[in-house]
Nucleic acid binder design. Structure first.
Length: 296
DNA sequence: CCGATTACCTGCACGC
DNA sequence: TGCGTGCAGGTAATCG
């Protein structure tokens, strides 16, 4: 489900509830998600105050006082929702619009805010590709985060860096952009969208835009700009709501309406003046959507 | 080193 | 109504 914009949207939804609150109790309703929960998972969190909620790529990091850093990944189908006594006891509110099976509520964090208000943070994940791990000390040194590449937010990712990352790589642009060791946070949707915005073919060897002299440099600049803009636009729209994905407060993201190619097989290309249409191809076993007419 | 394939798991849409 | 098939936003292990 969630690529960087969705994870960032989740983070922003949870932050006001979690930061400063104390974790009173942690329930795990099964022994594992993708991986087994860490030893003494609940015990090491209970009683501690949450200092901050961060994000690296598609990972959420929860920092507590005098405890481990909780690293959460949502996998394909993971989501968090916030329950307060108001929301839980009020039938027919937004819960109704998106009945999500409690069958897959795997973890519940019972919180007490500084004001004394109680809240529950519930992690739901039907496919259980998500996971929760602990980092001792600096989370960025945890094996799961240590190898991650540059964030596609902010100014660091530019044409020059992209050229350095791609130089000599014969892998298709699609695969290069999905490689979290190069750029961290892009997923299947936003890779298709970024390549369309940049007018670059997903099948083109990544190295060819890094080695093509002036034209190559222009392509790198276009791609860096496309990546940053599509991620920024998606975050601003509150992410994409596909299938059952919703925000922590139950609301929906809107970016799926702004998709240019993803899941639009057969539609006319939206690029002004382009006569092409959106095609679906399969690369490394996953769908890629692109316009062969304007993406070269 | 590289890339492609498979595995992990459940739900849903679709055709019959 | 049910059943088989394919597909789904993730990462990681394995195989050439």
């Amino acid at each position: 489900m969630p690529e960087l914009p969705e994870v960032e949207t989740v983070r922003r939804g949870l932050q006001p509830v979690m930061e400063g609150a104390r974790i009173m109790r942690v329930e795990t309703r099964r022994p594992d998600l993708r991986f087994p929960f860490p030893e003494r998972f609940a015990e090491r969190l209970e009683g501690r105050r949450i200092v901050s909620l961060g994000r690296r790529a598609k990972y959420l990091t929860t920092h507590v006082e005098d405890g481990p850093v909780l690293i959460c990944h949502l996998g394909m189908s993971g989501s968090f929702r916030v329950e307060t006594d108001d929301t839980a006891d009020a039938p027919g509110e937004f819960h109704h619009a998106r009945s999500k099976s409690a069958t897959h509520d795997h973890v519940v964090f019972h919180l007490a805010a500084a004001t004394g208000d109680a809240a529950r943070i519930v992690f739901n994940d039907p496919r259980r590709f998500g996971f929760m791990l602990f980092a001792e000390g600096n989370a960025s040194e945890h094996p799961m985060l240590a190898g991650l590449g540059v964030e596609p937010t902010g100014n660091e990712l530019d044409g020059k860096l992209l050229a350095e990352l791609f130089r000599g790589r014969r892998t298709p642009l699609k695969a290069a952009l999905l490689d979290q060791r190069l750029i961290a946070g892009l997923g299947n949707i936003y890779v298709s969208e970024a390549l369309w915005r940049a007018g670059l073919s997903p099948t083109r060897a990544a190295g060819t835009i890094a080695e093509g002299g002036r034209k190559g440099m222009e392509a790198c600049e276009r791609l860096a700009t496309a990546i940053r803009s599509v991620i920024a636009d998606a975050i601003e729209a509150g992410g994409s709501s596909l299938r059952d994905y919703v925000h922590a407060d139950g609301s929906l993201g809107y970016f799926q309406h702004a998709f240019s190619v993803y899941d639009r097989e057969g539609e006319a290309c939206r690029k002004p003046g382009c006569k092409g249409h959106v095609e679906r191809i399969v690369q490394s076993g996953r769908s890629t959507f692109h316009c062969a007419a304007c993406q070269r």
